[in-house]
Design a protein around this nucleic acid. Structure first.
Lengths: 340, 340
DNA sequence: ATCATACGTGAATACGTATTCAAGCGCTAT
DNA sequence: ATAGCGCTTGAATACGTATTCACGTATGAT
């Protein structure tokens, strides 16, 4: 009875069968006669045998591991997504190798290389942009990748986002209907498609009413930058009467500046609308009106597409957009008779 | 030029050397002559070779991967810890296989088995308790494990926590000095050492002044349970004038119930103290007085001990406690002349 | 010039499993 | 009774690397 490591060969000897037979017993889908199976399982149980996943992966070429790269974790939207991802992938028999990486080109490249060295079957990148060189490299390597919550111009990479353009548009419509005319936008980082698309939709929505944004400032997905933006918007003699903030995480910072530093009442003096509908948005302290990004469905779409690519069922890249409703709470004035 | 996979043998042929030589070039610490190294690196570069970590792990027995099991992710303390863990381990050359698991015995066992099958070099369990059977199994397997933010009676498993008893005591002292006499406690889950130790310290701190808790309710580390507890505490004719809540995450729920449902002023009518000092605690909306759990130092201690165990440098289990200060903000009355 | 030493290199092997292939077996059909 | 078929099993091999061992060469000392 070997102490540290017990291999399939040990089990084979114990059961009086060959090593391949042991392998077959532990490989789903392989046929073995009932009494063989019984003997092998008994021996395995007795010795405490468990298949070595590494050795298995080496020969099958399937590591049953997905690489996950995350840029921001301070935004709770991503922790919610991480939770769903873990559950969904685990249910499908996959494990997750996770890396938190800053969104710099060099960092991302090295991190992806790390994952490839570990023979991951696929890669999910959340809120990370990639160079086309890198996506080429992945294509060459045959490792499928999905961008989560970030789009890409390159049509050959698949991305899963919410309908950011439509979302921005909905917000504009809501605020205009609410009687606002001086509507500013503290945008998501303009280096990210997410930030750009929400802005574009917002502008389109205003344009439909012959309006333009009162002001647009890049909040860089950062609390500090957004707080600074909020202060600067109100340091002029023509402050906005409503602000659409590029995501909830930034919106909380804006709300706090307005309430606690500037002493403004929300929504009496200023309406605030966010984007994501993270858990905190529903808290009494914020009651944030916001566009819901359905993390569940986004995760499901991501995993489904990725696994289809791995299985070879699906070969085409897709740009998947998932629609989300405007969730109306108390941080923005509600238009009379609003029903939509 | 092989397309999908290029192996060390391909590089060897290209460079006109043997496969072991290629291996040596890519194994730090192995000596190779300069011109060999040059030729091999050139060939590797040309073919796009990268060592296969799986094959390497299979033979060395070192996967350079750490398994991480997390129970709660809605409590932001753990996302902060996760961030540090990722950075620290990556800097040391380790990757992370992450699993989010509910804190049920069966679930945890199966998850640990999963990690063992993947040949992880060590395991970190954050806020999950384990059976002694499981810790025996790990000992037998020779895979070191560290409990993060959770203690264990068994002295043979190492745990890293903050000084929970002292923390609870500090809070009691602070509130008593502040003139409070009806001090209640909405505790952390009493199934967890963390929750129990904070309560015990709190009671000891009160006892030093001849006091007892006004009431103690288990908040189960849950927002809902804590909110319900807060409501029940004020549904009597003798409500508390201060509440020590078992962690920040629960404290936010309590604050919201008091402010928005019961219309109470904090800290004028009730003082609230939390535990953890998560990022949100410093936000203007909460300004929560709380005991800081130094996530950075806890992570460093965890990683250092774990890697020492893996290297064999350290063989003894330890119970590591890291002290954290009381961070005074505005959610609790500040004693006159408080200096400590 | 000769021997000893040290060092760099290649041949062989091991890690633990899945898979190909041929062989053995029992069964049915003629 | 025998040829043929399908099914189960074992022998051999492959996956891609690190490591042991033996060998050859260059270096230094005598």
């Amino acid at each position: 009875m070997p102490v540290g490591k017990v291999t399939s060969l040990d089990v084979a000897k114990e059961a009086g069968v060959s090593q391949p037979t042991v392998s077959r017993v532990f490989t789903p889908g392989m046929k073995v006669s009932p009494d063989m199976e019984r003997r092998v399982r008994a021996a395995a149980e007795k010795l405490g045998y468990r298949p070595n996943t590494l050795a298995r992966s080496l020969i099958t070429g399937q590591s049953k591991t997905i690489g996950l790269i995350l840029a921001y974790l301070d935004n709770p939207f991503y922790t919610e997504a991480l939770e769903k991802l873990s559950q969904t992938l685990r249910a499908k028999g996959y494990n997750i190798m996770i890396i938190l990486a800053a969104n710099h080109a060099g960092e991302v490249d090295s991190v992806v290389q790390d994952l490839l060295d570990h023979q991951v079957d696929g890669i999910i990148m959340a809120s990370v942009s990639i160079s086309s060189a890198l996506s080429d490299r992945l294509k060459e390597e045959g490792v499928p990748m999905v961008l989560f919550n970030r789009g890409q111009d390159d049509p050959s990479v698949t991305s899963v986002t919410s309908a950011n353009f439509d979302g921005g548009k909905k917000v504009a419509e809501f605020l205009v209907q609410g009687g606002h005319r001086k509507i500013a936008h503290i945008s998501g980082w303009q280096g990210a498609s997410t930030g750009r698309d929400r802005l574009a939709g917002f502008e389109a929505g205003l344009a439909a009413h012959g309006l333009k944004p009162h002001a647009v400032v890049d909040g860089l997905f950062s609390r500090e930058a957004s707080a600074a933006a909020a202060r600067s918007l109100f340091a002029t003699d023509a402050p906005p009467d409503a602000i659409f903030v590029g995501n909830d995480h930034m919106a909380f910072a804006v709300i706090e500046v307005l309430r606690h530093e500037l002493g403004l009442d929300i929504p009496e003096e200023v309406s605030i609308v966010g984007y994501d509908d993270v858990t905190l948005a529903a808290w009494d302290s914020f009651q944030l009106t916001t566009v819901r990004q359905p993390a569940n469905r986004m995760v499901e779409a991501t995993v489904e597409h990725l696994l289809d690519r791995i299985a070879g069922t699906e070969t085409q890249a897709e740009r998947i957009e998932i629609d989300g409703p405007l969730i109306i709470r108390k941080s923005a004035r509600i238009p009379k008779g609003w029903k939509e």
